[in-house]
Write a protein that binds this DNA or RNA. Structure first.
Lengths: 211, 211
DNA sequence: AATATCTTTGATCGATTAGTTAAACTATAA
DNA sequence: TTATAGTTTAACTAATCGATCAAAGATATT
């Protein structure tokens, strides 16, 4: 039997995958290098060989998870489609991503709040100014039609994303609630239904705003 | 000079206050007993004298902070006023509480998600079934008028609370955004404006729902 | 085959941390 | 004053954790 040697790339990927999972589940402070090594199926010293320290390993993982969260969203908001279609597509795409990575919101919000030094990577990934400019340029008429003043656009943006992100951050509380209320539907079923509910809700609100 | 002896109650309160602050800021895993002792101005061994372990101290603090988050909200939703007035009052009261305790949402969501054993206290404090029954009983007609089906009520509830809670959980990200966008208003000013924006948004959406 | 370089491991180190202990200190009451 | 119970402290312990190191193993180069 020929023993196939795992190359360094494979090892690095194994470490990265394990570290992503552990950090996402437990956060930086509660994550243990030993547990990451165990899940990757390697020795603990090898972690320090590939990534010098826990901090560096974390930062590498953090940047990738940050991109996983925001890249698709950014691309949706850059698209050349109507504002209503954009909202529908946003919920469809973002909720799909979050169903596959349900721990992402709480992990990111938490680490950003505890480690202000992570700010640089955020600015580069989540390009707010660019997004706002695109929205102003492409949807100025629609937004004015809806009675949204210029200064209220941040309020609207926060509202839209919170409807997709918050349920994942509050996922365990929601599961307890649903269980106690005798709701037999799963959390994922709830989030599937939320795609349409959120789209309709936002569009209905915009069509009925006081001008 | 007469040295006034601090009574045990004063000491216990000092410890509790310091522990609340540290746990709220850093979370259970990153909080240090030494730091709590320092902030309380006492010896570390005294922490273990009043609260046997870090876990017990944390659980005591957690229950109080959980109540601080949900007690007022529960009382608002129990009141005998119209649904629209209830929504307005909810945002007014809850956002006021959160402005005074901005770290509360992320702290609670995070600890609940990392420690499922905390579930008991949550069920007793956040009495979902009771809240849902009250809403069904008092507002059945309004909710039907708005085109909200019975099964969609959880969607509506999550939407309402997320608009108040999420911005605090994402507070640091929002601060970065506002800074980069050249927004000179403070986060608290944003949240003050959000009281009216959120009320209007929810009411507008409800009045315009497809039946 | 011989050498050099890269990868992986077991063992260990030093620092940090929650928790303990024994003794000192204070207040109260007899 | 003395005895008792409650409070506070400095010093210490045991365990955990991130990090290091020396040596073994694997791969590539000549």
């Amino acid at each position: 039997m020929v023993k196939v040697k795992t190359t360094d790339l494979q090892t690095q990927e194994k470490i990265f995958k394990a570290a992503s999972e552990i950090f996402e589940e437990k956060g930086f402070a509660a994550a243990r290098m030993q547990e990451i090594a165990d899940r990757a199926g390697i020795n603990k010293a090898l972690l320090h060989y590939y990534f010098r320290s826990k901090e560096l390993l974390f930062e590498a993982v953090f940047q990738v998870l940050l991109k996983k969260m925001f890249e698709k969203i950014l691309s949706v908001f850059m698209m050349d489609i109507s504002f209503e279609k954009k909202i529908k597509l946003y919920y469809e795409e973002h909720i799909n991503i979050l169903i596959r990575n349900p721990n992402l919101p709480l992990f990111l919000l938490n680490e950003i709040s505890h480690n202000p030094g992570l700010g640089k990577g955020i600015r580069e990934t989540l390009r707010y100014a660019e997004m706002r400019d695109v929205i102003y340029r492409k949807h100025a008429k629609e937004i004015r039609k809806y009675g949204i003043r210029k200064g209220e656009l941040p309020q609207l943006m926060v509202t839209i994303v919170s409807m997709a992100i918050f349920p994942f951050a509050a996922r365990n509380v929601m599961k307890m609630m649903m269980e106690q209320l005798g709701d037999t539907k799963s959390f994922n079923t709830f989030m599937q239904a939320r795609k349409e509910f959120a789209s309709d809700f936002v569009i209905a609100a915009l069509k009925n705003r006081k001008k």
